[in-house]
Structures are given as structure tokens and as C-alpha cells.
Design a protein around this nucleic acid. Structure first.
Length: 471
DNA sequence: TGAAATGTTGGGGCG
DNA sequence: ACGCCCCAACATTTC
């Protein structure tokens, strides 16, 4: 009886999964496989937070598959060939990844499998449109978001609400699975050895059920007021769906369908999904940009070196409350509100003049939703060296941003508790508070909370001068 | 998906 | 009543 391997990667769902659907359509039995091969991710090996999520997502997927997910470890090609030999599979199907290293590896795997007479096929589960399907009238990749998004909308955003596939009797038997040397999930070492994950575990439900619950909550409470609500980091009015999208526990087509059914306010949110598409479009067409600026004029930009300042930023000890609040939210929960991401990124690159790559690396290591395309776009946008980037003169003032979007200081107080007793007027800028005010709030600057790492006005002017010289 | 500097306007205090 | 100044409020320009 014919058997197909479905090679799961970051498409950890059963619904709207074209590789799985293809396998079910063409073959009698299906062998779902996950192969752990961290070395094949190149220099962008997944960080600890990402691995934590992956562990639980795989555990959850395995449960949905009636414990028939075969986990293996090793080089992917060798592992697949061994599995084909041991199981008698005639085909391997998977859903595409779009990072440069993954494309290179998967292309080689497809070629080799076909050379061996195996039916190898890849599908799109992760994006609304393939990066190579969309181009400007000059047949070039888009480099500006708005026309890119208009084109996608004009084509019609694909959406689907598929029922779960009927798997009963289609998965290979448990005894057959055991003969294929399954690796216990725990042995992959994805979970932390020392338990630093309490904050993350208390914040997230990294399962398909968690994704659906989070989506329902967002549709009910956030989507309608997304346009304005998304800017308030203390409120829970953003989707928080990014990690589910990254690991494919939710597909973008499913999300479009849910938004359409969810009523008003969806356009502003769908546009954010458009930025995700744009990020993948850019990384596909400009594969070096995860490490190098897209705008060549920035190749020789005079970034500073500052290990102590970088460490202060990473650990939320810059002395600028909103920046520190964001960095601590990231460290404790593996996630940061998007407006705050822009603010801390602006602070690192512009006020501290530290290279965006250092920030990108830290986000990569700590974010639960770390995604190479999105991370690259976001950091290059902030640094002004990417596609459709922020103008060089756009420097966020974290004090003003705090007063505008965290007016009563709820966000700062939550993540920087040592400032909690400061009055609203000073909570975003304790260094300007009088000695009496500080004393009454129990804050000794330089002891309980640091003096600001840099003067905002002077460092802003330094940044403007440096960016102004890029010509 | 900025911020700060500069310009303009209009109301009110005051001699 | 009038002109002058101050300054908040808003608009425009510049970085």
C-alpha cells in the first residue's frame, strides 16, 4: 500500500496544510515526520525562546496526530533517505520555507529525492503569495510596501477555512512507527536545562488550541479597535498571533478568512499581515539582507562598538523607562509589543549608534516569534538602510512616545516596578524629577534605577549628523 | 508607524 | 479705545 512522508517543519497544523492534503490525496498511508537538524539553519540557529515554543508545538502536533508524529534527529537528507528505505515510502511532501539557507538545502533535497525515483513535492502553506509570483511592472521585486500591498489586495487575498482532514486509518501504525527509531521529543534538548521559562510558560499557550483561543479573543476584543488600540502597549489589543504564524500553527489564509468573518476593523490588521508578506518577499529576493544592509550606502556606516551599552540595553538597564520596560517584557515573556519594538530599536541604533545587527541578533535569541524575514525587515526599517525604510531623521523620543502611548505609565510600572511609585508626570523621565519626588517614590537614581545611558537630545543630534553624512 | 524648530494667529492683560 | 506684548494653540518646515 502506498505511503507518503509528510515532512513537517514550520507548518505545524493539520488544517490548510497543502503538503498533508497532497499526501492524503495521492497515497493510502501517511507518515508524518519532524527532523531536528539545528546545524542546517546556518548562523541563524534558533534561539532558546524559539526552541521552547517549538518543543511544545511539536508535542501538541504529535497529540493531534494520535502520537504518530515520528521525531528524528540528524542531517535531513540522510534521515529522509534512511526513512524511505526503512518504511517503503514512495513520496515526500513538505511546505516551503523561505530563508536562504533553507531554500538551498530543500532544493538539493528535492533534486536528490527525485534522482532516487521518489516523488518529492513542495507546497505553500506559509504565505498568501509566493515571493516570485509578485513583481512590479518592470518585472522587479517590490521595494516599497504600499504598491506591494495594493497589488496583493488587487489580486484578492486567498482565504480558507478548511475542515480538519480525516486521518483515521490513514496514519501508519504504532508498531510500524516504533520500528523507525523514533526519538523522544525530550531528547532533542529544546527545553531549557535551568528553568528560566516560567514567565514564558505563564504567558503563552503554544498549541493549536491556544492559537484558536487567542484568535477568537482578538476577533472579539481587539480587531474592531485595532487601528488605534494597537499603539497602546499596556492594553492587550494586538493579536499576539505572531508565534503561531511563525511555526505555522495558524496559516495566513486561515487568518484572512477569520478576519473576513470577524467584521469591521480588519483592514488595518490585514495590512500588518501584508508587512509579513513584504518581509518574506524582500528576504527571498535579497537573501543577503539578514546580515547586510539592503542600501549599500550603509555598508561603511560608522556604527559604534559598545559592549557595556549593548548589555545595558539587553537587560533593560538603560535608564530610559519605556526602553527598559520593553526589554524586560521581552526577556521575561519572549515577546514585546510592536510599538515598543520600534522604540527600543530606534534607541539602540540611533541614540546609542550600535549596529542594527546586534539588535537583530538579540531579538532573534530572545523572541518567541523570532522570524528571520520579519526581524530583518524591522531592523533595517528602523536603521533606515532597508526597503521602504524609515527616513533617516525619524528618531523616536522614548519619553514622548511614553507620554503619548503609555500616558498613565501602566506599561512602565508593570515591567519596571522600581519606578512604580513615581507620579505619572515623571515616570517616563525620572532623571528630571526633583529630589523630593524621587525620595517620596523610593527611587535613588544610580542605585535603584540607572541614570540614563545617554542624553536623548544630544544623542539624537549625533545620530542626525551621522545619518546626514550618508550620501 | 517623528521630533523639534520656526512661523502664524488670536485672545487677553495692561499701560 | 488703542497698541503692544505675551503666549498658548495650531500649522508649517526642517532635520
Amino acid at each position: 500500500m502506498s505511503l507518503a512522508i509528510v515532512w513537517f517543519r514550520r507548518d505545524l497544523r493539520l488544517s490548510d496544510n497543502p503538503a498533508l492534503a497532497d499526501a492524503l490525496a495521492r497515497h493510502r498511508y501517511v507518515l508524518p515526520v519532524y527532523i531536528h537538524a539545528p546545524g542546517e539553519d546556518g548562523v541563524w540557529a534558533a534561539g532558546a525562546a524559539s526552541n521552547w515554543w517549538l518543543h511544545h508545538a511539536l508535542d501538541d502536533l504529535s497529540q493531534q496526530l494520535d502520537a504518530r508524529l515520528l521525531v528524528r534527529r540528524g542531517p535531513v537528507l540522510d534521515t529522509l533517505l534512511a526513512l524511505i528505505a526503512d518504511s517503503g515510502a514512495e513520496a515526500v511532501y513538505w511546505n516551503r520555507l523561505y530563508e536562504p539557507a533553507a531554500i538551498e538545502r530543500d532544493t538539493a533535497i528535492k533534486r536528490r529525492l527525485r534522482a532516487e525515483g521518489i516523488d518529492a513535492g513542495s507546497h505553500n502553506a506559509a504565505l498568501l503569495f509566493e515571493p516570485w509570483e509578485v513583481s512590479t511592472r518592470q518585472e522587479r521585486p517590490y521595494r516599497v510596501f504600499t504598491p506591494f500591498w495594493k497589488e496583493l489586495v488587487a489580486r484578492g487575498l486567498p482565504s480558507t477555512r478548511q475542515a480538519l482532514p480525516q486521518l483515521t486509518g490513514r496514519l501508519i501504525g504504532a508498531e510500524h512507527l516504533r520500528a523507525l527509531d523514533p526519538e523522544p521529543l525530550d531528547s532533542l534538548g529544546l527545553l531549557p536545562r535551568i528553568r528560566w521559562d516560567d514567565g514564558i510558560a505563564g504567558t503563552w499557550e503554544p498549541t493549536r488550541a491556544g492559537a484558536e483561543a487567542r484568535l477568537d479573543e482578538f476577533l472579539a476584543s481587539g480587531l474592531r479597535h485595532y487601528q488605534s488600540g494597537r499603539d497602546l502597549p499596556a492594553k492587550d489589543r494586538v493579536s499576539r498571533l505572531s508565534p503561531y504564524l511563525h511555526f505555522g500553527q495558524l496559516g495566513p489564509r486561515e487568518l484572512v478568512a477569520a478576519c473576513r468573518a470577524g467584521g469591521g476593523g480588519a483592514d488595518a490588521y490585514l495590512r500588518e499581515l501584508g508587512w509579513r508578506e513584504f518581509a518574506h518577499h524582500l528576504l527571498y529576493h535579497f537573501p543577503h539582507t539578514s546580515d547586510e544592509p539592503l542600501d549599500e550606502r550603509f555598508a561603511a556606516f560608522p556604527w559604534r562598538a559598545g559592549d557595556a551599552q549593548l548589555a545595558a540595553w539587553q537587560t533593560g538597564r538603560t535608564g530610559v523607562p519605556l526602553v527598559d520596560a520593553g526589554m524586560r517584557q521581552l526577556w521575561q515573556t519572549g515577546w514585546m509589543h510592536n510599538r515598543v519594538r520600534m522604540i527600543v530599536a530606534s534607541f539602540l541604533t540611533k541614540n546609542l549608534l550600535l549596529p542594527w545587527q546586534a539588535g537583530a541578533r538579540w531579538f532573534w535569541d530572545t523572541l518567541i516569534d523570532a522570524d528571520l524575514a520579519n526581524n530583518t525587515l524591522g531592523w533595517q526599517w528602523t536603521a533606515g538602510c532597508g526597503a521602504d525604510a524609515a527616513p533617516y531623521f525619524r528618531v523616536f523620543n522614548p519619553v514622548l512616545q511614553g507620554e503619548r502611548f503609555d500616558a498613565n505609565g501602566d506599561y512602565v510600572r508593570r515591567w519596571v516596578p522600581e519606578l512604580a511609585r513615581l507620579p505619572d508626570k515623571w515616570v517616563q523621565r525620572p532623571w528630571e524629577a526633583s529630589a523630593v519626588v524621587l525620595e517620596e517614590a523610593g527611587v535613588r537614581l544610580g542605585q535603584d534605577y540607572p541614570h540614563p545611558l545617554v542624553d536623548l537630545k544630544a544623542s539624537r543630534e549625533r545620530a542626525l549628523a551621522a545619518w546626514g553624512r550618508v550620501k
